[in-house]
Design a protein around this nucleic acid. Structure first.
Lengths: 144, 144
DNA sequence: TTCCATACTTCCCAATGGTGACCCAAGATG
DNA sequence: CATCTTGGGTCACCATTGGGAAGTATGGAA
């Protein structure tokens, strides 16, 4: 998208700081942000990260803690997070296999943010549920 | 999933605090957290929230800013966020229709967290990309 | 009269997520 | 010896979802 010609939304260039002007996650390099955000901010990743932020856990522990997650999804999620360098995978060659997952240093730097997100959700779930009910009943009466 | 028989991980009830040991998002009431987290922390919602945290925007502005998003997905996302009471929708009955979206008070309380997440991503994308490359090349050589 | 813009909605198909079955290894159990 | 169990996975398949294209309504411009 052409910078200069962008019209009604044209912010004067030069006002740029981390969070100012044309925050645009599109065809530019920033699209990688989109891609990464996608990865870390999906359903299971957030939960895994939040749990691992507390302490390292084994595969089966994670599975039990999260418990809506299927083996495949947990495995896939962990593999993604490992690929992205956010979690480390330690295999103990013992006979019932044992694999520990922990946050890497990089992962830890995300941990607090993710926890903040989860905590926000916990703290505000009631208000959200209220809002949903309001919205739904308003919609129903509007349709009537 | 028998509660009582669950062994090594059986948490005694009553030891639960906001972020203590028994963080388990499963069959209990906490499952709502999962549901909500799902909603707010998906691909487009985060980006929308982050953008609206800067300032209110119109539908088409959001679309241009995010620009990987289809009309449908943006509409769906906004409807969800509106339902959850995180964004407000203001329709101006003018002739090319105009609809403004803004964070509600509730949405604003999330805004900073979401921004933090996005900023983290922006700040660490290079390290993640490096990690990916490392992982991928390690995997390739392992397969050879 | 046709075209344009905005803000959607509907339809359809491909991609993706998720489920359950199966696999592997070795020690315990019968 | 055969079989079961346990932990950590993979695989094939199906349901859900995401995304693209096109349709809708409105009134003003060309």
């Amino acid at each position: 998208m052409e910078e200069g010609t962008s019209t009604s939304l044209g912010y004067p260039e030069g006002t740029v700081s981390a969070w100012s002007d044309a925050h645009q996650w599109d065809t530019r390099e920033d699209c990688e942000v989109r891609q990464i955000l996608d990865r870390i901010a999906d359903k299971w990743s957030l939960l895994v990260l939040a749990l691992l932020a507390e302490r390292p856990l084994r595969f089966s522990e994670l599975r039990r803690r999260i418990d809506g997650v299927s083996q495949r999804m947990l495995a896939v999620t962990l593999r993604h997070l490992e690929r992205d360098g956010l979690v480390s995978r330690t295999v103990f060659p013992v006979v019932p296999p044992r694999v520990d997952y922990a946050l890497t240093e990089l992962g830890e730097s995300l941990g607090s943010t993710v926890q903040a997100l989860v905590e926000w959700t916990e703290g505000h779930q009631e208000r959200i549920i209220e809002a949903r009910n309001r919205y739904d009943s308003a919609k129903v009466s509007a349709e009537a």
